[in-house]
Write a protein that binds this DNA or RNA. Structure first.
Length: 226
DNA sequence: ATTGCCGGGAT
DNA sequence: ATCCCGGCAAT
């Protein structure tokens, strides 16, 4: 984590802020929370689908120098561009959008991490894709997360086609179900506290910048609501 | 030891 | 209002 931070903030000289490296980092990560809180999931999901394919492709052909596929500038740009439009806009932009960033190890690492989470979390949702997207094969990359975040929320009635559906849709479906039936299962209701995995567990400490706002603030998680 | 989150503090 | 952490309970 330490190295991550150091790489992260000081990679470009945008860490002008004195000791607030960590903070600026987390903020920089994604600030579109107020507006994207809802579209957030959507955004992720779509990106994921796309990335999954890209990754797969990249893996199969994996050219030594094909960042265009593995680390699509748009994706990265998406997250950072807006943020910096106020003060460090010029700075960060120039440093992050320049070809240099692509060759910069830190940048690469960063991108990898991003993809890792993006690819893993959602990827584990579908059961079919996992067949060809085995963890072992992905290990060649840098993905090493826990598997399936999703789950039993709809376990009893899992058959729901929550595969192609939008994330938000899936949720709206899941919630009602959850509130209407599973609450009473005596055997299964043995979880008094941490119901499912929350942002922290799913994304991990190193990706703190993609937790839901509440989780970042140590408040009750609002993404994986119980 | 880790995780989720209340209560409270800082801006 | 936004952002974060100390510290606790539950695990």
């Amino acid at each position: 984590m330490a190295r991550l931070l150091s790489n992260y903030s000081c990679t470009n000289d945008m860490c002008v802020s004195t000791g607030k490296a960590l903070q600026s980092w987390s903020n920089e990560g994604r600030n579109c929370d107020s507006e994207c809180s809802d579209g957030e999931e959507d955004f992720y999901y779509s990106e994921i689908k796309l990335n999954t394919d890209s990754v797969a492709d990249g893996l199969s052909s994996l050219s030594p120098a094909s960042p265009s596929v593995l680390s699509p500038p748009p994706a990265t740009e998406h997250r950072r561009t807006e943020t910096s439009s106020s003060t460090i806009g010029a700075k960060s932009e120039s440093s992050s959008s320049t070809p240099l960033s692509r060759s910069a190890p830190s940048a690469l690492y960063l991108v990898h991490a991003d993809h890792a989470y993006q690819a893993t979390a959602p990827v584990s949702i579908p059961s079919t894709s996992s067949a060809r997207f085995t963890p072992s094969s992905s290990s060649s990359f840098s993905i090493s997360w826990q598997s399936p975040p999703v789950t039993f929320t709809g376990a009893p009635a899992s058959p729901t086609n929550s595969q192609t559906q939008g994330f938000s849709e899936q949720r709206s479906q899941t919630i009602p179900v959850l509130s209407s039936l599973p609450r009473a299962s005596g055997s299964l209701s043995r979880k008094s506290r941490g119901e499912g995995k929350k942002c922290r567990k799913v994304y991990g400490m190193e990706n703190r910048d993609m937790w839901c706002t509440a989780c970042r603030w140590k408040k009750a998680c609002q993404r994986f609501v119980d």
